[in-house]
Design a protein around this nucleic acid. Structure first.
Lengths: 121, 121
DNA sequence: GTAACCAGTATAATGGAGTATACCAAACTA
DNA sequence: TAGTTTGGTATACTCCATTATACTGGTTAC
């Protein structure tokens, strides 16, 4: 009886922990602009205005805010170097690449989901 | 030159398609309650009030709305049977299980991200 | 027969993500 | 030296997800 309880509460803890982890991931990837920004930077855009122009519809305000939070989450790195040809530069971190498997699975699922929905309608 | 253009535009198309697929997945998993609901149903809760009670903080309105959209997305099935012991029953579909790999990767990433953030602060 | 439980719906309010628009100082450019 | 580009900030607004609260009609339990 006590034993069962223990197992159950451990299971519950794990489930809460897992839902929490999932929501952390969603929070980092979520919102309207995160993925387009990551995509843009990973595709060779490194300056603020460059990224901005590459994403139709985004405002400077949103780009600024998102870049800041993504820097906090260590997904990108901002460097300022007055003597470089590019004074302010945004780059994806190696850590950002750890997203790889997640992104891949999400793309796979999203594509097959779209097909599934179309097939059943 | 024309060749390069072709390749580039194909790359661009694929990227848009991938960002789109990603956002589809995010849309299905996103929001505050989707994951807790999936979790609850997958862990043996099948009646409306049962699910409601198992998720602290959720309102009947939100549960009702989310269940409806999840049914549209074929993640769960609602069955009504006046003569059964449970008249209204919610179940996860086999299709819902296709989330498995995505969810797994997201949990993995979420956990290690939390550790990473804690380590660097 | 009334009290509690079931599966929800209706209406109104709130908060926060995202939008719109204007503005800024510094550098570079013609 | 006037105009443009860069890397942003400031202020106000809008819309939509989520909340809060109340209500309903049917069923089961005592």
């Amino acid at each position: 009886m006590e034993y069962t309880k223990l197992i159950l509460s451990k299971m519950e803890r794990n489930q809460k922990e897992e839902v929490q982890a999932l929501q952390d991931t969603l929070h980092v990837l979520g919102g309207k602009w995160r993925l387009p920004i990551i995509n843009s930077i990973c595709n060779g855009n490194h300056r603020f205005r460059e990224i901005e122009r590459s994403i139709p519809g985004i405002t400077t305000r949103m780009l600024s805010r998102e870049l800041k939070e993504m820097e906090l989450n260590m997904l990108i790195k901002r460097t300022e170097d007055r003597d470089a040809e590019i004074q302010v530069k945004y780059e994806s971190t190696p850590y950002c690449k750890s997203f790889g498997p997640v992104i891949e699975e999400m793309i796979k699922w999203g594509k097959s989901h779209r097909e599934e929905i179309i097939r059943n309608s």
